[in-house]
Design a protein around this nucleic acid. Structure first.
Length: 555
RNA sequence: CCGCCCGUAGCUCAACCGGAUAGAGCACCGGCCUUCUAAGCCGGGGGUUAGGGGUUCGAGUCCCUUCGGGCGGGCCA
C-alpha cells in the first residue's frame, strides 16, 4: 500500500473541517505544492475558500482548522502564512518513502485504477491519397501519446483509424495514377488541374504495371496491370498508399486496433439508415433541390446541406453515420484527434448525432484539435501542398531526425499551440535537443547501476533514513508528483505535460548526480542513494513509455 | 463580417478545476572533468504575462474589449 501525502493531508483537513464547520464539511479540499520550499511541502487554501461562507477572517479560520487537526506521525510542522494558507511540512521519512513505493510498483507506478467504460481514440485518419506529412505526424504523436496516457490512467483504449476510400479524392487519385501509368506527366497540358502531382504517384503506377501485390494492415490487393481497369487501379492505389502509411506509422511506433472505411458505411446501409432517421425525426427540409439538416437547432450558425442536387451526400453525413456506429459499438467515451483545420465538422457531427435522438450526450464525441505545424528548413518555411508534391513527409522526418526526437518534438507542445518544426534544429544531435537530456539521465543511471553491479531487487527494501539532502528530497518530491501528473494530463488530454515533467525530473536527477556520489563507501548511504537512483529510472521509464520514446541504457 | 485557437524573457516553450517572489531550455557572460557518462552541473544578466477595463482576499489563468498571428465559415474533405 503506497503512501499518498496529498490524500493523507486531505483526510486530516476533512476531519478538522467537520469539527470546525460541520455545515461546510463537504467543501472541496485542495492541496498543492508551494513553489517556495519555505512554505512547506504542501499547502491548502481551504481557510480562504471558506472565508466568504463563514463570514470570517481567513487566518482565524485557519487557526481553528489547525487546532482541530488530528495528530499525524508524518507531519513535523503545520503553520499559517500569507492571507491564510495552511502550510504542511512533512517528516523526512514521509518524503522519502515514495522511493520504496516506486520500487514495489515498478512499471505500474503512476498507473490509475481501472475505469468504467471503454474509450475509443480516433486519430490520424488520413485519406489514402498520399504519404503522411508532418501534420499527420503531430496527429499520430499526440493521438498515440494520449492513448498511452489514458491507458496509464486506467482506461481501456481502442485506437481507430478512419478513412475515405471511395469519394471524389479517390477518383482523383485513380485518374492521376492511371494517367501516369499511360505515360502522361503532370507537366503535360492534359494533366488535370486538381490531379496529384507527387512523384509517389509514379511509384504507384509503376507498381501497378508490374502487377505487384501489396499488403497493409487492413488491405491487400494484387495489381493486374491493365491501365484501362480503373476499378483495379483504385483498389491498388488505396492498398498501396495504405501500406506506405502503415510503414510510416510502424516506424513511428504507432499501431491501430481498428480501421474503418467510409465505403463500408455505404455498403452496409449505415449512411442510408442515418439519413432516414434524420428525415423521420423532422430535422430536414428540401430547398433549392437539396436536402438540408437543421443543424441550427443544435447550435450551428447555419443549416447544412446533407444531400446535394446530384444525389450524393456531403461529407459530414457519413461522419454522422460513422459516429452513430461508434456509439452503438459501446464507446461511451470517444475522443477524435484531428487537425484544427477540420474544426468546423465538430458542430455538424454533434448536431447530426443529436438529431438522431439516439440518447447520445450533447458533448459527445470529444475532440482534441491540434493546431498547424509549420516546417522550417534552412531558415525558410517549407510549404506543404499534397498536389504540388513538395512537402515534408513523416518518413523524411523519422529518417532524418529519428523516431524519438520526432515524437518528442511533436508532442511536447500544447495541441492548441501552433508548432514550428525546425528540421535543422531537430536534426542536430546537440544539447538543443531536449529529448537527449531526458534520455541521458536514464543512461547515466544505467551506467551507475551497472558499475555497482548488485542485485537491484534488494534495493526495494533499502533503509532510506540516510536520505535527506535538499536535492534528494526535491527529487523524491518530483517522483511523488508523478501519479498526480498522469491523472491531470489524462484528464486534460494534455500529453505535453508528461514531456515537461520528464524534463524537470531529469533536471532534478542531473543536479543531484553532480553534487553527490552514489557509489560511496558507506554501505547504508550507498544503498539508500541507489534506491533513489533506481526509483528515478523507473519513473523516467514509465514517463518515456507514455511518450513512446525509448529509454536507452547507454548513449 | 462571423466562429474557433493562440499571444508569457532575444528565441522555443512550461506554469496541475484562480494561489504566495511567473519557471525551464537555447542563446549570452563567468566557473566545474586524476573520482559513478561534461549529451552534464553551478552562478549571472534578462519580464508592465500583447494593450486596456472588469470579477475577488488573490488573475498569466475567468469575463468584456482593442490589437496582432493562425485556421475555418463551399451542394470540397
Amino acid at each position: 500500500m503506497s503512501f499518498d501525502p496529498q490524500d493523507h493531508l486531505s483526510q486530516l483537513l476533512r476531519q478538522a473541517l467537520t469539527s470546525v464547520a460541520p455545515d461546510q464539511a463537504a467543501a472541496d479540499i485542495l492541496l498543492e505544492r508551494p513553489r517556495d520550499p519555505s512554505h512547506g511541502d504542501w499547502a491548502s487554501n481551504l481557510a480562504m475558500q471558506l472565508a466568504r461562507a463563514l463570514k470570517s477572517n481567513p487566518r482565524k479560520i485557519a487557526e481553528s482548522l489547525v487546532a482541530a487537526l488530528p495528530p499525524s506521525e508524518w507531519l513535523v510542522k503545520v503553520d499559517i502564512a500569507g492571507a491564510g494558507f495552511i502550510n504542511f511540512t512533512l517528516s523526512t521519512s514521509a518524503k522519502t518513502r515514495v522511493v520504496g513505493d516506486i520500487l514495489a510498483a515498478g512499471a505500474a507506478y503512476g498507473r490509475g485504477t481501472a475505469r468504467d467504460g471503454k474509450v475509443q481514440v480516433e486519430f490520424v485518419s488520413a485519406n489514402p491519397t498520399g504519404p503522411l506529412h508532418v501534420g499527420h505526424g503531430r496527429g499520430a504523436a499526440v493521438g498515440d501519446c494520449l492513448c498511452r496516457l489514458l491507458e496509464t490512467a486506467g482506461w481501456e483504449v481502442t485506437r481507430e483509424f478512419y478513412y475515405n476510400d471511395a469519394g471524389a479524392q479517390i477518383d482523383n487519385l485513380t485518374r492521376s495514377v492511371q494517367l501516369r501509368a499511360k505515360g502522361v506527366t503532370p507537366e503535360n497540358p492534359d494533366w488535370p488541374e486538381d490531379g496529384y502531382r507527387g512523384d509517389y504517384i509514379m511509384d504507384v503506377a509503376k507498381a501497378f504495371l508490374a502487377k505487384e501485390s501489396v499488403i497493409s494492415d487492413d488491405q491487400q490487393f494484387t495489381a493486374n496491370g491493365d491501365v484501362d481497369d480503373a476499378e483495379a487501379i483504385r483498389h491498388f492505389a488505396v492498398a498501396y498508399l495504405r501500406r506506405e502509411q502503415d510503414q510510416d506509422l510502424k516506424a513511428f511506433g504507432v499501431a491501430f486496433d481498428v480501421f474503418s472505411l467510409e465505403s463500408a458505411l455505404y455498403t452496409e446501409g449505415k449512411v442510408k439508415a442515418a439519413v432516414e432517421t434524420l428525415v423521420a425525426n423532422g430535422y430536414t427540409y428540401e430547398q433549392d433541390g437539396a436536402l438540408w439538416l437543421r443543424t441550427t437547432d443544435f447550435g450551428d450558425d447555419k443549416d447544412r446541406v446533407m444531400q446535394k442536387k446530384d444525389g450524393g451526400y456531403t461529407y459530414f453525413v457519413p461522419d454522422v453515420a460513422y459516429h452513430l456506429d461508434k456509439w452503438q459499438r459501446g464507446f461511451t467515451k470517444v475522443i477524435n484527434e484531428q487537425g484544427a483545420d477540420h474544426h468546423s465538422t465538430v458542430t455538424r457531427v454533434r448536431a447530426g448525432l443529436q438529431a438522431l435522438k439516439a440518447g447520445i450526450p450533447q458533448g459527445w464525441p470529444e475532440y482534441v484539435l491540434h493546431q498547424m505545424v509549420m516546417v522550417m528548413r534552412n531558415g525558410e518555411e517549407v510549404k506543404i501542398s499534397k498536389r504540388a508534391g513538395s512537402y515534408v513527409t513523416l518518413r523524411d522526418l523519422i529518417e532524418e531526425v529519428g523516431c524519438d526526437a520526432t515524437r518528442y518534438f511533436l508532442v511536447a507542445r500544447h495541441p492548441d499551440s501552433q508548432l514550428v518544426f525546425d528540421i535543422d534544429l531537430a536534426k542536430s544531435k546537440s544539447t538543443e535537443n531536449p529529448v537527449y537530456y531526458i534520455q541521458y539521465a536514464h543512461a547515466r543511471i544505467c551506467s551507475v547501476l551497472g558499475q555497482w553491479n548488485g542485485d537491484e531487487a534488494t534495493l526495494a527494501k533499502a533503509d532510506l533514513s540516510s536520505l535527506g539532502s535538499e536535492r534528494e528530497l526535491a527529487l523524491c518530491a518530483r517522483l511523488g508528483a508523478f501519479p498526480g501528473l498522469i491523472e491531470a494530463a489524462a484528464r486534460e488530454y494534455a500529453p505535453h505535460l508528461v514531456a515537461a515533467y520528464l524534463k524537470d525530473l531529469a533536471a532534478d536527477f542531473h543536479g543531484w548526480y553532480n553534487s553527490d556520489r552514489m557509489l560511496v563507501e558507506d554501505e547504508a548511504v550507498k544503498q539508500a542513494r541507489l534506491a533513489l537512483t533506481l526509483a528515478t529510472r523507473q519513473a523516467l521509464r514509465n514517463g518515456l513509455n507514455i511518450l513512446g520514446v525509448s529509454a536507452p541504457e547507454s548513449m
